[in-house]
Design a protein around this nucleic acid. Structure first.
Lengths: 198, 198
DNA sequence: TCGTATCGCAACTTCAAGTTGCGATACGAT
DNA sequence: ATCGTATCGCAACTTGAAGTTGCGATACGA
């Protein structure tokens, strides 16, 4: 953890406040949900006054977008087992695990439903997804090089096909999501890719 | 001529008020979006007073859930062309068309993002999806009977696989959604089904 | 130690949600 | 045609959170 020195004005205690408010925002999100998230409660939980929050963030939406973006910035390791099936399974299960923990549920609800209409949140959501997609593409290109998948498959399409059924259950049908869901997505994706449909 | 006397109190003008408020709610949704939807504006657009709305609906959420549920209750024709590929294409395109019109966008945003955290909305959303799924299952069973798809495929899984990539684009990636998306979903779904992955 | 940026605090405005009481009106039935 | 009742319009109200402002207090860096 390096204390950020880049701004011409080293903030001082500001960094701690920022971190505390971020943590409090996510905690309130988990406990109360997006609709019931008030700046006053967040400030109180962070041990900070309401005005301090408003001095750092324009409004409640900006605060939430900022906290979520920072939370989702965590790097996810890209698997490289030497077998597509295992790599894809690892990717699919990581999606499942990201969103099935209690806090994951809350983050999912905030990013994809509760606050999805906010431009900042929508942009952050697209950015996070696109980033993870781009970083996982080597899984597919390596599989092609190994001859496990036909040449000409679109890595992005493969990964979207992998993710789609999981998000459908999370966001639309509300069916239970577990490893079975991930494994099923892998089977379907591989079948489609090998049939030349991707 | 009397349609129903079962309620001891035939409401009278109430039906018209109800319809007007429903229409106004959807119109406000399209114009302003969920976040900016106020009961006062809805009432004014419906030519009705605020208190009248609150006498019929417990709160804003209930009103919205009611209006959306009624709006989504419209029956969608189940295709039966004699060829799976054509049937599935018709289904996929109907999903696309439902949510790409201006009003469709607004309804999508309200049902899946803006108001998704409300129990009434979430329940309505699951119910609508499950209903459409169940009514479309004959498309798959007929295809199996014709020998177009292998025995043992799960109709529900086939239809979910068809819908998943469309919803992924609508709700997650925000990529453009058009007939191409629908046709691509058909190709992937058929490939997976014929490979025995569904 | 001293200056400055940041924070705490309280009081304030604004806005929409939701409520209440009462008078007005339209409907259904006699 | 009239009469009783349920529904509606209206205005005034409470509540709660968003967001703002001014000032005094405090912690940090030099």
């Amino acid at each position: 953890m390096q204390p950020e020195q880049s701004p011409a004005r080293p903030v001082g205690r500001g960094a701690k406040v920022r971190a505390a408010v971020h943590a409090a925002t996510l905690a309130e999100l988990v406990d109360k949900g997006y609709a019931a998230l008030t700046v006053e409660n967040v400030a109180q939980r962070a041990g900070v006054h309401k005005t301090t929050v408003y001095r750092r963030w324009k409004d409640r939406e900006t605060l939430l977008a900022d906290a979520l973006a920072e939370h989702m910035a965590a790097d996810i390791p890209v698997p490289d087992t030497g077998a597509v099936e295992d790599d894809l399974r690892a990717l699919a299960r990581s999606i499942v695990q990201t969103f099935t923990s209690p806090s994951g549920r809350a983050v999912l609800a905030a990013m994809f439903t509760g606050a999805a209409h906010l431009p900042e949140i929508a942009a952050a959501r697209r950015r996070v997804f696109a980033d993870r997609l781009a970083r996982a593409e080597p899984v597919v290109t390596r599989a092609v090089e190994r001859g496990e998948l036909p040449r000409g498959v679109d890595p992005a399409e493969v990964l979207k096909t992998l993710a789609a059924p999981i998000y459908l259950r999370l966001l639309v049908t509300a069916d239970p999501v577990d490893e079975t869901t991930a494994d099923h997505a892998v089977r379907v994706t591989l079948a489609a890719a090998r049939a030349g449909a991707l």
